[in-house]
């Protein structure tokens, strides 16, 4: 009898692995990019279809190979976002890893996004937050008058984790002392 070979989508997926001589990261990550079409409603479906995965990496060197070729957030125009999430987590509230979570949001005056984004993602990739597996990913959102960076975590009810993320953000971003930081749960954002 002929045997049918089933390829599950799970096994078909490409998982990034560190190359020989490269420095592995604690987690694999994926870069995503999204750009909102002006005038379109931001429904879940249009959000998902607007978001494009750029690629995944597993080592420090692979990260730089992506990042060095990417446009800096400060040079983006229009309503655009870069997302850097752990491989397997979609940068959406609806993802299982995110649905009970929340995010720290920092609004930045124009001109600061590129430097802050780089410092944020280097801290995340280097495991500087020290909150176990709580971090899901980070986003930089380029808007008309200001830019926004955010870092998402799994458990919005975990006060110790949220405090630790905030303190690490203050340290690694070297923000002006009057910078306002706001924590939002994703269930609040949906409302």
């Amino acid at each position: 009898a002929k045997k049918k070979v089933c390829v599950s989508p799970k096994y078909n997926a490409t998982i990034a692995v560190p190359g020989v001589g490269e420095h592995p990261l604690q987690y694999n990550y994926s870069f995503w990019y999204s750009r909102r079409t002006p005038g379109r409603p931001a429904s879940t479906q249009s959000y998902e279809s607007n978001i494009k995965q750029i690629g995944s990496f597993a080592s420090v060197e692979q990260f730089w190979r992506f990042y060095s070729h990417m446009i800096r957030p400060g040079d983006l125009t229009g309503h655009s976002d870069f997302h850097l999430f752990k491989e397997g987590i979609k940068p959406m509230w609806e993802d299982d890893a995110n649905k009970l979570g929340g995010k720290w949001i920092i609004r930045l005056r124009k001109g600061l996004a590129s430097r802050c984004w780089e410092n944020l993602i280097l801290a995340m990739l280097g495991e500087q937050f020290m909150v176990g597996g709580e971090i899901c990913g980070a986003v930089v959102s380029v808007r008309f008058q200001e830019d926004i960076i955010s870092i998402w975590n799994k458990t919005a009810s975990d006060q110790a984790t949220i405090t630790r993320i905030r303190d690490t953000l203050r340290r690694v971003l070297n923000l002006p002392p009057n910078t306002i930081m706001e924590y939002k749960t994703h269930t609040d954002s949906i409302k």
């Binding site: 190359g19 001589g21 490269e22 420095h23 592995p24 990261l25 604690q26 420090v60 060197e61 730089w64 190979r65 060095s68 410092n119 280097l122 801290a123 990739l125 280097g126 495991e127 500087q128 690694v172």
Partner: peptide, 21 residues
Amino acid sequence: GTRIIYDRKFLLECRSSPLAR
């Protein structure tokens, strides 16, 4: 368990490695 921690300075140094190009 053990976690792989890198500081900013080390990550930036890796950028100039031939493997990062």
